Computed example of a mutant assay.
Amino acid sequence: MPACKNPMDWNQNNWFIHFGFLLNIPPGNLYSSICFQYNSSKAPGYYSDVHQAHTMPVPLHKSASMWIKLNADVAEKRNRYGVVRIDRNGSDSWIGGKYEDGGIEVSIRELGDRYAVSEDSIAPKIISIEPEKWASAKRIRVRLTDDKSGIASFRGEIDGKFVLFTHDVKSSVYTYLFDNERLERGKRHTFVFTASDGVGNTAEYRQEFNY
């Protein structure tokens, strides 16, 4: 068998450095020694090459640090760049990371996936649920989703005053239950709901209703 070009010992501080790609696995994060395999390719729609960090799944005890060079480094977009994991079907999922020296640095928990740099430029989506029934049901419900960096913050207001929305972490539905001590009856109210994602894209939904 040919000699391994990139051996990584489980008890060593392992580095792999290639043009546009760095990987550091600290001592004790590999459960056993491996022969690290790497390749890269071009793909449209990303701001970097696509990097294959090993050819089979290898879980890590804690994490490894990975850096991917940007092929197009636009200063105005740096806060919106992030690393995505690309599955075998070509779908990607957001991991994130931070800008560092012309690339994005991120922590990973497993080897064996493909990675590239993408951009999150789309604000969260806010969709009202049955606004015609808010008054009779004495509640406001909205559906809040984000397709990449995830929801970082949200806020509901009625007539300029904060109202408390709750949600189940497994659900995209956010609910406010009317409080008659705070919500005056027999008048028209203005409801405003705002949300921001992990890179700062912000959306606002505004609706008037009678109660």
Rank of each mutant, 00 (worst) to 15 (best):
N13V: 05
Y176N: 04
E105P: 01
L30D: 03
S41D: 08
S172W: 06
R85S: 15
G28F: 00
A152P: 01
G82D: 08
R188C: 10
M56I: 15
E204T: 14
I126T: 02
T55C: 10
R182K: 15
I104D: 00
S63E: 12
S107P: 00
D168F: 13
S128M: 13
F191L: 06
V142R: 01
V117K: 07
I108H: 01
D146L: 03
N201E: 05
W94Q: 07
Y81C: 06
H61S: 14
Q52H: 12
K138A: 14
R185G: 11
S128A: 15
G200L: 04
E157S: 07
A3V: 15
I34R: 00
C35E: 01
T202V: 09
L60D: 05
D168E: 15
A123H: 04
E100N: 14
S128D: 12
A3H: 14
E204W: 00
L144T: 07
H167T: 09
G45P: 03
D120N: 02
I95F: 06
L70K: 02
S121D: 13
Y46E: 00
D197S: 05
K133L: 15
A195W: 09
K77M: 08
K187P: 07
F16E: 09
F165L: 15
K98L: 06
N11I: 15
Y115S: 11
H51Y: 10
R143Q: 12
F162S: 13
A195P: 11
D92K: 11
L144I: 10
S65K: 13
Y99V: 04
D146T: 09
I108Y: 01
L23K: 01
Y99G: 02
P59L: 06
E119H: 01
N210K: 08
G150A: 04
Y211K: 07
A135Q: 12
N210D: 13
T194A: 08
N11M: 14
Y115H: 15
P44E: 06
I68F: 08
R155H: 13
R85Y: 04
G96N: 08
M1A: 11
Y211Q: 08
W134T: 01
I140A: 02
S118D: 15
N39V: 05
I129H: 02
S118T: 11
L111H: 07
L70G: 03
P124K: 12
D9G: 10
L30G: 03
Y46F: 14
P131M: 09
K77A: 02
N201Q: 12
R78H: 06
E100Q: 10
C4S: 13
P26N: 01
T175Y: 05
L177V: 15
Y38D: 05
E130P: 02
S121L: 13
S107Q: 14
C35H: 00
S65T: 15
F36T: 04
K98Y: 13
A137R: 11
L111Q: 11
I127N: 08
P131C: 10
C35T: 00
D147G: 09
A116H: 00
V74T: 14
I126S: 01
T175V: 10
K138G: 04
D197T: 05
R109M: 09
W134A: 05
G198C: 06
I151V: 14
R114Y: 02
V50Q: 04
G82V: 08
I158Q: 04
K62A: 15
V142Y: 07
G28M: 02
E208P: 03
A123M: 10
S48Q: 01
L60N: 08
